[in-house]
């Protein structure tokens, strides 16, 4: 019983990491219909922000809290620059944008390697987050949850809540939703779609920075950390469907859970293959993802 619970929680915490990474991606993907391959490097930028801030601010807890908004701004600014310089120009060639942003990610990785060195760097986790909480005590053993995992879960849920609020309850969110649903009609109604694109890209990329901060608690920080996790995040977005957050949320946790359970019964390499097969099978059933915006377009 304890085992089932602890596997479930492992699944949920993998899902929370996936959700944090995929949240910004689904926003930018839904908005511009562009998969930004440099998203992983924005995550990396967020993680290195923590590293740099810890050189300046000594307290691990304070620096982590300061890093959250700073990383949001840093990654967001990078996103805006990318959008202004390249993505906007390639509006009619969306598949090419995927390739161009991959070139950008290559450049950013090398930049990180030159600035911070090729080996992984270490950050300190605040003391509060290094311990664990005993949730359940049974005869067979205790169910223990790591504080850092709980923190990531809370952060992910907070980000979803904030984003939902932003999209549902603000004028900006209304404009974003309008552009996602029908760009031409939104432009015709007087929405400055270019400005909306920029803001969306800022928020989506900023969320990548926040995800980077969270990742410093669970994994190493290095120049290639972005590429290792980004493909899973892409899959979450593809399976979840465009333009709606609930698809991303559900699929992130479902994939995390599946990864954890399959990994437990087989090995990590078999789990990857099985998850891939499951996704292909799923797309047979819903080729446009779990939730789709109903449009009248042919595609």
């Amino acid at each position: 019983m304890t085992l089932v619970f602890s596997q479930l929680f492992t699944g949920i915490s993998i899902g929370a990491v996936l959700l944090l990474i995929a949240l910004g991606l689904s926003l930018t993907f839904g908005q511009m219909n562009v998969i930004n391959m440099a998203h992983g490097e924005f995550i990396m930028a967020g993680a290195y922000t923590v590293y740099v801030l810890q050189q300046v601010i000594s307290g691990a807890g304070v620096s982590l809290l300061v890093a959250l908004p700073v990383a949001f701004l840093v990654a967001g600014a990078m996103g805006v620059v990318l959008e202004r310089l390249l993505i906007r120009r390639l509006y009619t060639r969306r598949l090419d944008t995927l390739l161009v942003t991959w070139g950008v990610s290559l450049l950013l990785q090398q930049l990180a390697r030159d600035v911070f060195g090729a080996p992984n760097v270490q950050t300190q986790a605040p003391e509060l987050l290094t311990g664990s909480v005993k949730i359940l005590s049974t005869g067979a053993g205790d169910l223990v949850l790591a504080n850092s995992r709980l923190f990531i879960l809370a952060l992910a849920l907070l980000a979803v809540a904030a984003l939902t609020l932003l999209l549902r309850a603000t004028p900006l969110g209304r404009r974003v939703r309008a552009v996602v649903q029908n760009r031409d009609l939104a432009a015709a109604s007087g929405i400055a779609t270019g400005r909306v694109d920029r803001v969306t890209f800022f928020i989506g990329s900023g969320l990548a920075g926040v995800a980077g901060v969270a990742l410093t608690l669970v994994g190493p920080i290095g120049p290639t950390m972005g590429t290792n996790i980004i493909i899973d995040a892409f899959l979450v977005v593809v399976v979840g469907g465009i333009g709606q957050l609930k698809g991303t949320v559900i699929v992130a946790f479902a994939l995390g859970m599946m990864q954890s359970l399959v990994e437990y019964s087989t090995t990590i390499s078999v789990a990857k293959v099985l998850v891939f097969l499951a996704i292909v099978a799923f797309l047979q059933w819903r080729p446009q993802g779990l939730f789709t915006l109903r449009t009248r377009s042919l595609a």
């Binding site: 998969i35 593809v238 292909v280 797309l283 080729p287 446009q288």
Partner: peptide, 8 residues
């Protein structure tokens, strides 16, 4: 198709 196929 499109980006979906590329990612897959």
């Amino acid at each position: 198709r499109g980006a979906y196929f590329a990612i897959l």
